[in-house]
Design a protein around this nucleic acid. Structure first.
Lengths: 200, 200
DNA sequence: CGCGGCATATATCTGAATGATATATTGGGA
DNA sequence: TCCCAATATATCATTCAGATATATGCCGCG
């Protein structure tokens, strides 16, 4: 995934610009809570990157809590803002695709049962993502009052929604072209035990 | 992306099962040429993984070209087929999202020009992907005669098409909600030079 | 009151993966 | 003939995820 320059650097700068000063822990919490539908960072990436950004003067400690609950709160500097703005004016690198579910669907051409399970998995994942995105959109609408920030945040949610709906459309097409034991539409009730969970 | 067990292993086994015996070079060429819309591998991953698969008896050399054009042609073994089938019956791990274009769109809320550039970039990428997928679908239709292999291959292409169309729908929604200098629809002719390429 | 569990907070390591670079050789086209 | 693209493999630095380790404060439950 890495085409040399780290993108984590800019995600972290972006978190600090969007939310104001934060600790490493809360940077990661924001990414996990607010932009998880299109971005992710791990702690193993956040803390070393903060050190590096600090040594480059792109962030600075706003203050450090002493005592047992010690935490460094980081603030973006003017240089950091400039670096972020420069990166934002740069075209986005195309993602290197790695969609395990599609690889499995293609290679399962021998095995209709496995294929059906993957199609069901895609459906369930897309449905639960749609529910999560709906909740996220409500939250943004209630809490974000700046019109531009709100519009941009809602647009990222819309992107997730459209992508999830596209996956549901694909599920329908898959069930149509292959002829699968659908196990969707759930006509009435309890033949639940028919799909045992495979524990990998 | 790596949740410890390497997925490259199975992509390579899958290539050998789908296409028959291949050299490392041609495994990579197949991935780049036939499944690039949902998978990718680098040489730096292919060759060490082949060694590992060989040491585990999941693949074996079909024969080795001597002389200057030396190349090891690898074949999947019965054990390899079994390992692949077991993996295929396992639910796909959810992808860890990292969509640089969405991160940039969200963080560009200050900068309508950068935002418009990213929206245009998404549009152009989606359009060129749709053209590529159209060509890929024609190729599969002409060359793949086994009905199940053909159906599964076309389904992966359909997934790419639906995702690209969803991105185009997002572009339209973005242009509607933000109010952007669109530079799309191209009503007549030559004001082409208005978008200088930024060289990063 | 004590204790367990959860949130806060940071550090570190392994293994996976990309993309670049290096090194050969062969065949075809200008 | 000469150069470039394709064939073919190997290796390296860097990025990144995810697991694990280590503290502590706070809250509720019995």
């Amino acid at each position: 995934m890495p085409r040399h320059p780290s993108t984590s650097r800019f995600a972290i700068l972006g978190a600090l610009e969007w939310e104001g000063p934060l600790s490493g822990y809360h940077i990661r919490a924001w990414i996990k809570g607010s932009v998880s539908h299109f971005w992710s960072e791990s702690f193993g990436q956040v803390y070393p990157t903060l050190e590096r950004l600090h040594s480059e003067r792109l962030i600075e400690p706003a203050h450090t809590e002493q005592g047992p609950r010690r935490a460094t709160i980081w603030r973006i500097t003017a240089a950091g803002r400039a670096a972020l703005a420069a990166w934002l004016r740069t075209p986005a690198a195309p993602p290197t695709p790695r969609l395990e579910w599609l690889l499995k669907c293609m290679l399962s051409h021998h095995d209709p049962i496995a294929t059906a399970a993957h199609v069901n998995g895609v459906q369930h994942a897309a449905e639960s993502q749609l529910r999560a995105l709906h909740a996220a959109a409500e939250l943004v609408t209630q809490q974000e009052h700046d019109p531009r920030r709100r519009a941009h945040a809602l647009l990222t949610i819309a992107a997730g929604r459209l992508a999830a709906e596209a996956r549901l459309a694909w599920v329908a097409e898959a069930r149509r072209t292959l002829e699968l034991d659908t196990e969707s539409e759930a006509p009435s009730d309890a033949r639940r035990a028919s799909k045992p969970r495979t524990t990998p």
